[in-house]
Amino acid sequence: MAGRQINQGLKTALELGPVVGFFVAYLWLKDRTFTFGGTEYEGFIVVTAGFIPVFLLSMAVLWWLTGHLSKMQIVTAVLIIVFGGMSVWFNDPSFFKMKPTIIYLLFGGLLGIGLLRGQSWLEYVMEGVMPLTHRGWMLLTKRLMLFFFGLAILNEIIWRTMSEETWVYFKTFGLTAAIFVFFILQGGLFKEHGTQGESDDKA
């Protein structure tokens, strides 16, 4: 069911605001250590603990304003609670850093299952936003599946081999930029397989 329309700037602020807030808070607190209940927590853990409720609040406001959350937003929220919560509970940032890997493996795997069934679950998730032929949806789904798997591998390489600050920059800007560039590069596919009210009668 389609949600109510709201100002695009407000929608973007609600979706990206928590991520930007995480980045700013991390730069501010990354070199500090905090003690709660006799246990020391690095700035990254404290920022993660603050990010979880802020993200959930932004999603709640978005749902209240639009009456709708995408399936990807819901899954992302659940994984943020689980892996962010584990990082805070065990005082170990590794769990939160693995979150993008799990998200992209999950999304890529689900798209792959759909492809094996001869279906584009991406078309279902995006709810007809882009007018494409069946073949166009299948091609885009296959490419996005491989792209998600690539991002999962890249996230693992970066958080395991590079500094924490490098990973934060990658998560905040790199992943967003990569997704934007991916869809820009699909211009040829959209042009070739786009529909303007035409039925897909190609084999």
Rank of each mutant, 00 (worst) to 15 (best):
S199N: 09
R4D: 04
M130V: 15
F183K: 01
M126K: 13
L151D: 06
H134L: 02
R143S: 00
M138N: 03
G150L: 07
T172H: 12
Y169P: 06
V47S: 05
D31M: 00
L69V: 06
T195Y: 01
T66H: 01
L65H: 09
K11N: 14
L105H: 00
G3V: 06
V20T: 14
H193Y: 10
G9C: 10
L10Q: 09
I102C: 09
L62W: 00
A2Q: 12
F90T: 11
V54L: 14
I158E: 10
K99L: 15
V168N: 03
E156F: 10
F95M: 08
G17F: 02
L185W: 12
V125P: 04
R135E: 00
M98C: 12
G38I: 07
K99H: 03
T12N: 12
H134R: 10
M59C: 08
M86S: 03
Y104E: 09
F22L: 10
S87G: 00
F95E: 01
T161R: 14
E40A: 15
D31S: 02
V125R: 07
V61I: 15
V20C: 11
A13L: 14
E123N: 05
G9I: 06
L14S: 04
M98R: 08
F96N: 10
G174P: 04
V78T: 03
G136E: 00
E165M: 12
V20P: 07
F90W: 12
F44Y: 10
M86F: 04
F173Q: 13
V20D: 07
L189R: 01
L57I: 13
V78R: 15
M72N: 09
F55H: 13
K97N: 11
T161M: 14
G43Y: 01
F95R: 05
G17N: 06
S87W: 02
E15C: 10
Q8F: 15
T172P: 11
W137V: 00
D200N: 06
R4P: 00
R160Q: 05
R32K: 11
P18T: 09
G17Q: 08
L110S: 05
A177G: 11
G67I: 11
R135Y: 04
V181S: 11
M138Q: 11
E164C: 02
W63L: 13
G43N: 13
R160A: 00
W63M: 11
V46M: 11
G38H: 03
L110C: 07
F96V: 12
G67N: 06
K97V: 08
G174S: 04
Q186V: 02
V47P: 02
K171W: 07
A49Q: 05
G37T: 06
M98E: 10
D92A: 07
T101E: 01
W28P: 00
G3M: 06
G150C: 07
F51A: 08
G38N: 07
K171G: 02
V61W: 10
M98P: 03
G188K: 15
I153Q: 12
K202R: 13
T39D: 12
W121E: 01
I80D: 02
D92L: 05
S120W: 03
H68V: 05
G84F: 04
I6K: 05
G197D: 04
